[in-house]
């Protein structure tokens, strides 16, 4: 598929996203500068659309970076436990620094996410068994342990309400003033694009990369820091969106290969359109009610993940 077609589809989906919702906003109302229609668009629909595009793009790229650096197609922020660590981080920031500002929460969540991901990478290096499917299982187990610890403290300190809002990604509460933290992902994505070639080489392994003069550890750390911050930011603003970082890079890999130079743009755009589709579907299926995007992605993502598992021989 050509990138340009993918882009056009994404733009169309983004426009659709602006017009779907309980309050009817028509194109003609906007054309006639109807104040109410414009208010709805500017205060809620546009922020929602922008946050979907940013979250989808960033999570896709996060997955791509992680899969490249670990050389494992089943690793992603979901399956490495990164998301669970970020949530634990948010909880800790609420407990220890009550009234923490969003930036603070983000920093602490990102620090936890980074720690968790490094821990996962460390375990990965020590594992004798390099079976592709065993590694994400370890990550998921680790993530579940972290998640239970978080739930335990949430129960104990009466923060369950708070916690569950990050449990399932949801764009329905996004509006002006509640999503701007997501813009932090933009410069990070730019860095990811600049590092694309280096991530590709780093993916060939430490010896291979060193032979080519690449500062391997530095590149890996840059990649993991990008992943940690983006994950934290997305969870804080939107909530957990599982599997996107896993499946989008895999789909792109099938038709573009694994040279990031060829696949990073496709991953970015496909990530955005995938999330737009899930969100629009979630808004339409039980209209006028909504199915949260986390659930939608979870259901569709699990299906694709299962399919990938079944045909994983074709990957190896």
């Amino acid at each position: 598929m050509k990138l340009i077609y993918l882009l056009i589809i994404t733009v169309l989906l983004a426009v659709c996203s602006l017009f779907v919702g309980v309050e009817n906003v028509s194109f003609s109302a906007l054309w006639n500068l109807d104040e109410e229609a414009w208010n709805i668009v500017l205060i809620s629909r546009l922020p929602r659309m922008l946050s979907i595009v940013m979250a989808g793009t960033s999570l896709g790229i996060c997955g791509l970076i992680m899969q490249q650096l670990t050389q494992n197609k089943f690793v992603s922020p979901t399956t490495a436990g990164t998301m669970d660590w970020a949530r634990l981080g948010i909880l800790v920031s609420l407990l220890v620094f009550t009234d923490a500002s969003p930036i603070w929460k983000m920093c602490i969540a990102a620090a936890f996410a980074l720690f968790g991901t490094l821990l996962f990478m460390g375990i990965l290096q020590r594992l004798k068994q390099k079976d592709t499917i065993f590694i994400p299982l370890v990550g998921i187990m680790l993530g579940n342990v972290v998640s239970s610890i978080a739930t335990f403290f949430a129960l104990k300190f009466d923060l369950v309400q708070n916690m569950s809002s990050w449990l399932q990604g949801d764009f329905s509460l996004i509006m002006e003033g509640r999503y701007e933290l997501l813009y932090i992902s933009v410069p990070l994505l730019i860095i990811a694009f600049l590092f694309a070639n280096m991530f590709t080489v780093a993916g060939m392994g430490e010896d291979f990369a060193t032979n080519l003069g690449l500062p391997y550890k530095y590149v890996v750390n840059v990649g993991l820091i990008i992943v940690a911050i983006i994950t934290a930011v997305v969870i804080l603003t939107v909530g957990v969106i599982p599997f996107l970082g896993l499946i989008v890079p895999n789909i792109v890999s099938i038709y573009r290969g694994d040279n990031l130079k060829n696949s990073i743009w496709h991953t970015a755009v496909l990530g955005a359109s995938f999330l737009l589709v899930c969100d629009i579907a979630g808004r339409l299926i039980i209209y006028p009610y909504e199915i949260s995007v986390g659930l939608m992605v979870g259901v569709i993502g699990t299906g694709i993940f299962l399919y990938m598992l079944l045909r994983r021989k074709a990957y190896a």
Binding site: M198, V201, L212, N259
Partner: peptide, 19 residues
């Protein structure tokens, strides 16, 4: 990784042109 022969060989030029 899914890389073509040419992509792999191109890595050899990485020290000169960083990709």
């Amino acid at each position: 990784m899914r890389l073509t022969v040419r992509e792999l060989v191109s890595f050899g030029r990485f020290p000169y042109s960083s990709g």
